[in-house]
């Protein structure tokens, strides 16, 4: 390659990185703008979600009681971000229909409709997080379409992750599957809650072996943040016996 071609390629790369950073900044502005918008539907949906969250009913009962209200709100505010939030609530809670066998058949039309009319919503990562309401075949089809249609990097990363988990983390050739590879190469810094898709993909592709975690082995380092968000390492506690407890309050 000619020197000037190399320089041009470098400049193009720098511009691309810069453009992607600007795109992320714009998306953040869009997301926060949506929350603060004067549009009254934003507070209506926030209130309804909060009311459902504090309702003292059984989970199935509260879904059935609130479902018509979310449907009405979605209908009344068609095309808005509030509608997207209402549809995502309806999608997530189809989980409560699984015992009656109606979960997948109810969830799929909601997801199809969201993709048809709201493919540019920065909230579509939540459609992927609700993966449990879909069959494996539905996930493959839906998440592939999300990936093709969404302009948002965080949503694309979520779609790659959803698709990555449909196959073994490494193929027969020992290499990471195509979606984990994309996450590691292109979306390593994309955020999922308080962590990144890079760290999550690495954990799937290169988990510790049973030997590494065996009795008699030096415990692998853990680097992360504590409950206050402050950096913490397992080795900070060297010199003490450590009861390492993987836990959650559920």
């Amino acid at each position: 390659m000619h020197v000037s071609a190399v320089a041009a390629a470098i400049i193009a790369l720098v511009l691309a990185v810069d453009a992607s950073a600007q795109q992320d900044a714009r998306q953040d502005a869009l997301v926060s703008g949506a929350d603060e918008a004067a549009d009254p539907s934003a507070s209506l949906i926030a209130d309804l979600i909060a009311e459902h969250a504090s309702a003292e009913l059984g989970r199935v009962e509260s879904y059935l009681a609130f479902r018509p209200r979310f449907e009405t709100l979605a209908e009344a505010h068609r095309g808005t971000d509030a509608e997207v939030q209402a549809q995502l609530w309806l999608l997530k809670n189809t989980w409560w229909l699984r015992e009656g066998g109606e979960m997948e058949s109810t969830a799929l039309p909601i997801a199809e409709d969201l993709l048809a009319r709201h493919a540019d919503s920065p909230r579509l990562d939540m459609l992927i997080e609700q993966q449990y309401v879909f069959t494996k075949e539905q996930r493959e089809e839906l998440f592939t379409r999300v990936l093709e249609l969404s302009p948002h990097r965080a949503v694309q990363a979520a779609a790659h992750y959803g698709l990555a988990k449909l196959s073994p983390a490494r193929g027969d050739d020992g290499e990471p599957n195509a979606h984990f590879a994309r996450l590691l190469d292109e979306y390593a810094d994309a955020r999922w809650r308080q962590t990144t898709y890079g760290r999550i993909a690495d954990a799937h592709v290169s988990p510790f072996t049973a030997e590494q975690l065996g009795v008699g082995e030096l415990a692998p380092e853990i680097e992360g943040v504590d409950q206050d968000g402050k950096p913490m390492k397992l080795s900070d506690h060297r010199g003490k016996v450590v009861l390492l407890d993987f836990w959650g309050d559920w």
């Binding site: 308080q194 988990p207 510790f208 692998p220 943040v225 993987f246």
Partner: peptide
Amino acid sequence: PSFFDGGGTGGPIATKWG
């Protein structure tokens, strides 16, 4: 203290530790 593992059971520490 506790490490906060990213915000769910699919967090990187728990996944890495199997």
